[in-house]
Structures are given as C-alpha cells and as structure tokens.
Simulated assay, not measured.
Amino acid sequence: MASRNRKTKVLSYNLHDRCRKYTGVDRSNVDVGAMINLINSDHVQEMVSTNSLQGFYGHHIRQRYGMVPPETVIIKGRIVYLSRAFKTIELRASNDGTVEHREEFYDNEPGEIALQDYKAQAGGFSTSVNYKNIGGRLIPTGFFGFDFVAQPNYASNVGDGQLFDGLFVPEEPEGIVSCFDSATDIFQLSPSEIVIAQLLEDQIFQTYDNINSQIHLLNELGNAQGLVGELSDEMAKQKRRQELREERKKDLYTGMVHEVKSFDSVQQHAVQVLQGLDQPNVKEKQPKPKKSFGNIFSVWG
C-alpha cells in the first residue's frame, strides 16, 4: 500500500543552532564554513543530480559497514539486502549556515516505513559526514547524505535532523571520524570492537525484520479495508437493483389499469347497461309509404 506522494517539502535547519539545550551532541566546534562549501561542492551536487546521494532507515548500517555500505551483507548466515530508503533530490547551503534539502522516499519496504514515520513526525533526517579533528576543530571531509533516525541531533525540523548525529560517533584527536568504518573487517577488530560490531549487526537484522513485519501488517490492513469497501459497494448495488425492480413493477401496474373502482360500483354499472338493452331509449324510424304504379300512370295520364 505505497503512498503516492513520496517527496518531502523543502526542509530547513541551521548549522549554528541544533534547537537542543540538554540532549544530543554539541556541534559548535564544527567548521561551518567548510561544511557549507562541502555541501555546495561540485562533487556533492553531482551526487544529488545523479540520484546517488541515498539514505538508510537508521544510522546503524553506516556505523557498521561505513559511509558507503555494500548492497548485501551476510548476518547470522543469511544474506541481508541493505536497501536504501530514500534519495536526496535537492540540497543547498547558504552563507548564514541554513541548509535546505528535499528527499524522495523509495517505493520499497524501508522507504515506506520511513515515509510513514516522516508523516507522523516520528523522527527526522540526520546527515552522514566524515571530518577531521584538527586542534579540537572538526573539519568536514566527506558528505554522504542523510539517514532517517529517531532522534536527529538538529531538532529544528520535525521530521528533519542533521549531521551524522547518532550519538555514538567516536572523535579521535587529529584523526578522521569515520563512524565505525574500522568495523568493516570484523577479524581485525579488538574484542570490544567485535562486541560493538555484533550489536550493530543484531540491530540491523532486527530493524529489517521489524520493517517486514510492519509492511505485512500494513498490507493486511489495506486488504481488510478493501474487502469492507467491496462489501459496501455490493450492498449499495443490491439496494439499487431492488429499487429499480420496484419502479418497474409500479410502472407495469400503472400501464395495466387506470382508475381503480370498487366491486359495488362496477356491479351497479353492469346492471344499468343490461337495463338499457331491455328498454332502448332510441325510437325506431317509421317506414315511408311506397308509391304505387297506378299513381304514376295517373299523373302521366
């Protein structure tokens, strides 16, 4: 039961104001000028124009498999398709730090669930960005689009958020913040990283399982509504057919009889007709006398 309108309005937020006071991650140390230039760069804009800036339902896929995850992975011995949920169709940044963007949800299971959450204002968009930490200053180095998350760090857009602000992004001094890119090869991880990678995989697996369950429920609801609608239409048709039958019957009776009379009045009329036959009220004409031949000859004579 896919929705027809799958595009968002133009969403807007400002890099200088997360609209949060007590929750989330402070981003005042981000080089806003560098972020603006990165968003407006030819590289990122070409990604937008070629429908290549795509997002997932949740950040955990990128946290586990990097900013550009593969199409499929194996989790618990099963092949899992890491389906994208939407794509960025418009993106621009102004000098005052205002970022505007529009997204289009895909007509697939993750896209449908993200779309329903967006319409319900249950969550928002959060950017996926790599950056370097230089003297405590975060310099953006790669912009990979948006994911749809439950609690975006930039809360100014209800149903919109920003900056890879799942609250678990590691920041290493003088290093590149790569959002669990080091967890790509599980055999090269430390014991603690292995645990984190396994937890992320479990979350990915559960997320897709929940998406399938929700889609199944939505389909069942749609089928039930369709059956109710069909039953209502059929009952309306039957009622109309019965009304037509009554109208035809009435027309037939109207054509067969005109004035409706009682039995007594009909009997009285019959008696009057019979009496009229016995006593005709029309006088018979008298026969004219016939002329004789004698008279004729007498005239000639």
Score class of each variant (00 low, 15 high):
Pro191Phe: 14
Gly222Val: 02
Gly175Arg: 05
Leu244Lys: 01
Leu231Tyr: 05
Ser182Met: 08
Val169Met: 03
Asp202His: 00
Ser190Gly: 06
Arg248Cys: 04
Phe205Lys: 00
Asp209Ala: 15
Glu246Met: 10
Val169Tyr: 04
Cys179Tyr: 06
Phe168Ser: 06
Glu234Tyr: 10
Ala236Arg: 13
Ile176Phe: 00
Lys239Pro: 01
Lys250Phe: 13
Glu174Cys: 03
Glu201Tyr: 10
Lys250Ala: 15
Asp202Glu: 07
Lys237Thr: 08
Lys250Pro: 05
Lys250Tyr: 12
Ser192Asp: 14
Phe187Val: 12
Thr207Cys: 06
Ala236Gly: 12
Glu174Asp: 03
Asp185Ile: 14
Ser192Asn: 13
Glu230Phe: 06
Leu217Asn: 00
Leu218Ser: 04
Val177Thr: 09
Cys179Pro: 02
Leu227Glu: 14
Gly175Asn: 10
Asn212Asp: 15
Leu221Lys: 03
Arg245Asn: 01
Gln206Pro: 03
Leu231Trp: 00
Ala236Gln: 15
Asp251Cys: 01
Glu230Asp: 03
Glu230Cys: 03
His216Gly: 09
Gln238Pro: 02
Thr184Val: 14
Ala183Pro: 01
Glu193Val: 05
Val177Leu: 09
Ile186Ser: 04
Tyr208Asp: 09
Asp185Phe: 13
Leu189His: 03
Gln188Cys: 06
Pro170Arg: 00
Lys250His: 15
Thr184Glu: 14
Leu218Gln: 02
Ser182His: 11
Leu200Lys: 04
Glu193Ala: 11
Leu221Met: 01
Glu171Lys: 08
Lys250Val: 08
Ile196Ser: 00
Phe180Gly: 11
Phe205Arg: 05
Ala224Tyr: 00
Glu172His: 08
Thr184Lys: 15
Ser192His: 09
Thr184Asp: 15
Ile204Trp: 00
Val228Ile: 15
Leu167Cys: 07
Glu247Ser: 14
Lys249Leu: 13
Gly229Met: 04
Gly229Lys: 08
Cys179Ala: 12
Asp202Phe: 04
Ser178Asp: 10
Val177Glu: 11
Leu189Val: 02
Ile211Trp: 08
Ser192Ala: 14
Tyr208Cys: 09
Ile215Thr: 01
Asn219Tyr: 07
Glu220Ala: 04
Ser182Cys: 10
Gln214Pro: 02
Ile186Gln: 09
Asn223Val: 00
Asp185Ala: 10
Asp233Ile: 00
Phe180Ser: 06
Ile196Phe: 08
Lys239Met: 11
Phe205Ala: 09
Asn219Ala: 08
Glu201Phe: 06
Gln242Asp: 14
Ile196Pro: 00
Asn223Asp: 15
Leu227His: 12
Leu199Pro: 02
Ser178Lys: 11
Asn219Lys: 09
Asn223Ile: 12
Phe180Asp: 07
Gln242Lys: 11
Ser190Leu: 08
Pro173Arg: 03
Leu199Tyr: 11
Val228Pro: 03
Phe205Asn: 08
Gln214Trp: 11
Phe168Ile: 05
Thr184Pro: 11
Ile176Trp: 01
Ile204Leu: 00
Gly175Met: 04
Arg245Ala: 07
Leu227Pro: 00
Thr207Asn: 01
Leu217Asp: 06
